[in-house]
C-alpha cells in the first residue's frame, strides 16, 4: 500500500479528495468493517480454536487447536455426507435451472409480442417468495397422497413418498429450488438475448442454417459471459442450502438432505462455535473453488 501513497501522496488536491471520499465512505465503512469483513476473518480465527457457547463473553480466552476442528469434520461421516449432498444439490440443480430458464428466455425472445410482459411477471413471481413459506407449502404437496403424486397419478406414474424416501428427498428439493429460482437466470438470459443482434440470425437463415444450428453457433457463444454470471450467482445461492431441510426434513431421512449450512447450524446449536465456524469455512472454500472453476470453464473456451 505504501508504494501507491508514495507515488501520488505529494499531490495536495488528491489528498483532499481522498479525505472527502473517505468521509463519504465512512458510514458504510463502519458497518462494513464491523459486520462484513471482521466476521469473515473472525470466522477463520474461530475455526482454529475450541471456542464454545460458554466462552461467548470472553472470545479471546480460548484454546488454539490448529486444524483439529477440520480433522473432526472430515472424520465425521455426517459432515462428509453434508458436503456431498450440498455438491449434489449444486451440481444437479444449477444446470437444470439454467436449461429451463434458457428455454423460457428463448421462447419469450422468439418474437412473440402478445402477453410477453405477463409471462415474464408470472415466471418471475416465485423468486420473490420466502423459501420458508415455499417449503411449508411444498411439504404438503410432496406428501405421499399429496398434490404432486395426485398429478403424477393422472399421467399414470406412481410417485414415491418424496420426503420420506432417502433416494427421492433430494431430487424433490432440487425441483423446488429450480421452481423458485429459475426466474433469476431467465431475466438475465433475456437481457443477454436482447443484446444479440437479429441481423446475425437473418444472415444465418439466408445461408440456409436451421434455427437450431444458428442458435447453437451464434446465440450460445454470445451468451457465454451471461452464462458465467448466472452460474456464479446460482452457485452462491444454492450452496447456502439451509432453509429447505430446516422446514421440510430436518436433514433426513437418513441424512439424505443434510447440508453444510444445516450441519453448521446444528453445531452452533450444540454450542460448538469453533466446529461450526470450521464447517462454514469449508463452505467459503467450496464457493471460492467453484467460482474459480466456472471462470475457467466459461473463459478459456471463448
Amino acid at each position: 500500500m505504501t508504494s501507491i501513497v508514495a507515488n501520488r501522496g505529494g499531490d495536495p488536491a488528491r489528498r483532499r479528495r481522498t479525505l472527502v471520499a473517505w468521509s463519504f465512505c465512512l458510514p458504510f465503512m463502519v458497518f462494513f468493517l464491523a459486520f462484513g469483513l471482521w466476521p469473515v476473518l473472525a470466522s477463520l480465527l474461530m475455526s482454529f480454536t475450541d471456542i464454545r457457547s460458554r466462552d461467548l463473553r470472553t472470545p479471546v480466552n480460548v484454546g488454539f487447536v490448529g486444524l483439529e476442528n477440520y480433522v473432526t469434520l472430515f472424520d465425521d461421516p455426517t459432515f462428509v455426507r453434508a458436503l456431498l449432498n450440498t455438491l449434489y444439490f449444486v451440481v444437479v440443480g444449477i444446470p437444470v435451472t439454467m436449461v429451463i430458464s434458457l428455454v423460457i428466455a428463448v421462447a419469450l425472445n422468439s418474437g412473440i409480442q402478445r402477453l410477453k410482459g405477463f409471462f415474464r411477471v408470472g415466471y418471475f413471481a416465485p423468486v420473490v417468495t420466502s423459501i420458508i413459506a415455499v417449503a411449508v407449502v411444498w411439504r404438503y404437496m410432496y406428501q405421499g397422497d399429496g398434490l404432486i403424486n395426485g398429478a403424477l397419478a393422472f399421467v399414470g406414474i406412481h410417485g414415491p413418498d418424496w420426503l420420506n424416501d432417502p433416494v427421492w428427498a433430494m431430487p424433490a428439493m432440487i425441483v423446488m429450488a429450480v421452481w423458485r429460482n429459475f426466474g433469476i437466470p431467465m431475466v438475465i438470459f433475456l437481457a443477454g438475448l436482447q443484446g444479440v443482434a437479429p441481423e446475425l440470425h437473418e444472415a444465418a437463415s439466408v445461408d440456409g442454417a436451421s434455427r437450431w444450428r444458428s442458435f447453437r453457433s451464434i446465440t450460445l457463444p454470445l451468451l457465454r459471459p451471461t452464462t458465467l454470471v448466472v452460474a456464479v450467482l446460482l452457485s452462491i445461492s444454492y450452496l447456502q442450502f439451509f432453509e429447505e431441510p430446516f422446514v421440510m426434513t430436518g436433514g433426513g431421512p437418513l441424512d439424505s438432505t443434510i447440508s453444510i449450512g444445516y450441519y453448521a447450524y446444528e453445531q452452533f446449536g450444540f454450542g460448538l462455535y469453533g466446529l461450526a465456524s470450521a464447517a462454514s469455512y469449508v463452505l467459503v472454500l467450496v464457493i471460492a473453488l467453484l467460482s474459480f472453476l466456472q471462470f475457467r470453464l466459461f473463459r478459456t473456451r471463448s
Binding site: W38, P39, V40, A42, S43, L45, M46, I236, L239, Q240, F242, I260, G261, A264, Y265, F268, Y273, A276, S277, S280, Y281, L283, V284, I287
Partner: peptide, 8 residues
C-alpha cells in the same frame, strides 16, 4: 454467504 459468518 451469510451462513459463513453467522457464528462470529
Amino acid at each position: 454467504p451469510g451462513i459463513a459468518t453467522f457464528v462470529p
